[in-house]
Design a binder for these strands. Structure first.
Length: 261
DNA sequence: ATGGTTGAAACTCAA
């Protein structure tokens, strides 16, 4: 079973690339972030025509997440628990049947948090705490669980071509990196790093200053696995193809393969 | 040296 995550940076601007990529790769489940669309504006028809079920948690103008699945989506939950006043669409979760088992999948768009020292960074910190609390809850279920998305966290210096460039950035602050370590301490596995200990594994390249051409990337799109999911992990990788295409998102898909019917 | 780009929406913000 192949599960992918892709910050698509506007689903309406990227629908042709998304269709082509779905048709070529046929992932069982796809977690999208930054769809920048309300639910009614999401281009579900061409995606459903490829055999995918669609669950959307959208918002006008920015943010927005979705899950696409070749299998049914059950028990869909929209919004990260822990703050009923939070209006930003950054979390959607669903149960997906996999043979005689189930896997729970979430599409996560963790706040960017820039610039540091503002309420945006404070919001990021609160959101990271809420995610940890929800992760703790989900882990008590002791089921295969995949929390996939744009975490807006550079976990280690090795996850950036030029880490010094990010020293004042919210993505590489001690608070962000500490939250990441807490997620791992709860028992979650970083799927990409587990399969790829080598340097220069990135998922995002800025549009500006020729970042893609210089491979000046960062690794911020992650799939965190519960122990029950990690036991099923057979492969994980970054698909750099879409980032090199015409009119790309600034992120490229990352994916895992689980040994699941 | 403080540039450079993109999407959504609207006379600018978020990334």
């Amino acid at each position: 079973m192949k599960i992918a995550t892709w910050n698509i940076n506007g689903v309406k601007a990227r629908i042709a690339q998304l269709e082509g990529w779905l048709a070529a790769q046929r992932p069982d489940v796809v977690c999208l972030q930054e769809i920048k669309s309300v639910d009614e504006g999401f281009p579900a028809a061409p995606i459903e025509a490829l055999g995918y079920n669609v669950a959307v948690h959208g918002q006008k103008g920015f943010n927005g997440v979705a899950i696409l699945s070749l299998r049914p989506l059950e028990d869909v939950r929209r919004g990260l628990p822990g703050d009923p006043t939070d209006e930003q669409a950054r979390y959607i979760e669903a149960l997906v049947p996999a043979g005689d088992r189930m896997v729970r999948v979430a599409s996560i768009y963790l706040p960017n948090g820039n610039p540091i020292g503002t309420d945006k960074f404070a919001y990021k910190c609160r959101w990271m705490d809420r995610l940890e609390a929800h992760m703790s809850e989900l882990l008590t279920l002791e089921e295969p669980l995949v929390l996939a998305g744009d975490y807006n966290i550079i976990p280690e210096p090795a996850d950036a071509k030029a880490p010094q460039q990010w020293s004042e950035d919210a993505l590489f602050q001690p608070e962000s990196r500490a939250a990441w370590r807490r997620y791992l301490a709860l028992g979650m596995t970083d799927a990409i790093r587990t399969c790829h200990p080598e340097p220069d594994v990135y998922s995002f390249w800025d549009y500006q200053a020729g970042a893609w051409q210089r491979n000046n990337g960062i690794r911020i799109d992650h799939l965190l696995l519960s122990p029950q999911a990690a036991d099923l992990l057979v492969a994980a990788d970054v698909d750099k193809g879409p980032r090199g295409a015409e009119k790309p998102s600034d992120h490229t898909p990352v994916w895992i393969e689980l040994e699941l019917g």
